[in-house]
Amino acid sequence: MSQILTLIAPPGGLAAPDLARTREALAALGASAGTPDWLAPAEAADLPFAELAPDQAIAAARAALGEAPIDLIAQPAEGRRKALLLADMDSTIVTSETLDEIAAYAGLKERIAEITRRSMNGELDFRQALIERVGMLEGLSAEALERTWEATEMTPGAGALVATMRAHGAHCAIVSGGFTFFTGRVADRLGFHAHYSNTLLVADGKLTGKVGEPILDRDAKLATLKRLAAELSLPLTATLTVGDGANDLAMLQAAGLGVAFRAKPVVAAAARARVDHADLRALLFAQGYRAAEISAA
């Protein structure tokens, strides 16, 4: 079979009848559907198919499954395992938006979070929104950065994602519109090879309200993907990107597998692959990794 539809759910959320309904739905559209292959019991399975486009397979499966919290990723069977992972940080590798959390120490979290929300949904220019939000924090003690880091949580599955891909020879990097103060620490904790982000300027122990140039934005994320792929002598088809915001969309669309992870509506609607229910191990299942192959964080 030339295509694979991967069904992924939170642990215990996927059952044999789900696979049977999906297989029947594909067959009803004239597809050849193979035997399901469990990657993780009650959590993830592959369903090989042919004679149907990936988007048609996903639409048919979604109609068959209704509102069940099951993620669906369809792609060519060949070349599923990727050699480069490029991941957004905020609300992707970590559960929070770190700039919003810094703003809490200035009493501005709700105000800044609303600008963040609009920017990540593509309603505002990312560069200008970043400059505006950081400018509002001028004079805030740099201690707020450390306190924010202490409260920052890794997204479930992030450590396993990086550890497993590294164990199989992939290069793993963070690319973020956030700040080096955080991306460096996240990279160290989870084992990313590299991190690329913005610099939050500090002077005399306080935030200056400025961001170092050049600012890493949507275009820079795509450029980073292309540069790393070239440096590693990889085609873009061998790359995996993941993110949630509008500034991630260009790199999601350019990668061999670009996954919108619990993404903003504009991103979820435009991305070819999305994960709304499972954790970040879903990106491993999408590559065909079995539960026994997944490394501990």
Rank of each mutant, 00 (worst) to 15 (best):
L85S: 10
R81I: 00
L240A: 05
E153I: 10
V275H: 00
G157V: 05
L29K: 08
A129Q: 03
E51L: 13
T180K: 12
G288F: 03
T164C: 00
G13L: 01
I294D: 07
Q287I: 08
T208L: 11
Y289N: 00
E24D: 15
E146V: 05
I294K: 01
S32F: 09
A268N: 11
A158E: 03
I115L: 07
N198G: 00
G258A: 06
T237Y: 12
L26K: 12
A63S: 15
T199M: 08
A59K: 11
F181S: 08
A64Y: 15
R272E: 12
R218V: 00
L108G: 00
A220P: 05
F261V: 07
T237V: 11
P48D: 09
A144L: 03
R111A: 10
I112K: 10
R147K: 11
G107M: 02
G256M: 05
E138C: 04
A286E: 11
I112R: 09
K264C: 13
L161I: 02
L222V: 04
D46M: 03
R127K: 08
R218K: 12
C172L: 06
R81T: 00
E51C: 14
G159D: 01
L108P: 03
T183Y: 02
P235Y: 11
T239K: 01
G34K: 07
V259R: 07
A50I: 04
I115V: 14
V186I: 12
R117N: 15
A40V: 12
F179D: 07
T35A: 15
D276H: 08
V242S: 06
L201S: 13
R118S: 01
D55T: 13
I93Q: 11
G245Q: 02
A59F: 08
L207R: 07
L234Y: 10
Q56E: 15
E146F: 05
L65N: 07
L225Y: 09
A271F: 13
T164L: 02
S176R: 00
A60R: 04
Y196D: 04
A104R: 14
M89D: 15
G258C: 08
D188C: 04
V242P: 03
A57M: 11
L201K: 11
E231G: 09
R118Y: 01
W38V: 14
D71K: 06
L280K: 11
P11F: 02
G66Y: 09
I102F: 09
A25S: 14
A20Y: 15
E51D: 15
F126C: 02
M154Y: 01
R62K: 13
A44H: 02
A296C: 10
A286F: 01
L7M: 12
A250L: 12
Y196V: 06
T237R: 15
E123R: 03
I215R: 06
A291M: 03
T116P: 15
L257Q: 10
G256S: 06
A158C: 04
C172F: 05
P41G: 07
G122F: 00
V186G: 03
T35K: 13
L252F: 08
F126A: 00
A158D: 04
L225F: 06
L240I: 06
D55W: 14
A229M: 08
A61N: 14
A246P: 14
Q128M: 01
D55F: 13
I215L: 13
A57Y: 10
R218D: 14
L225A: 03
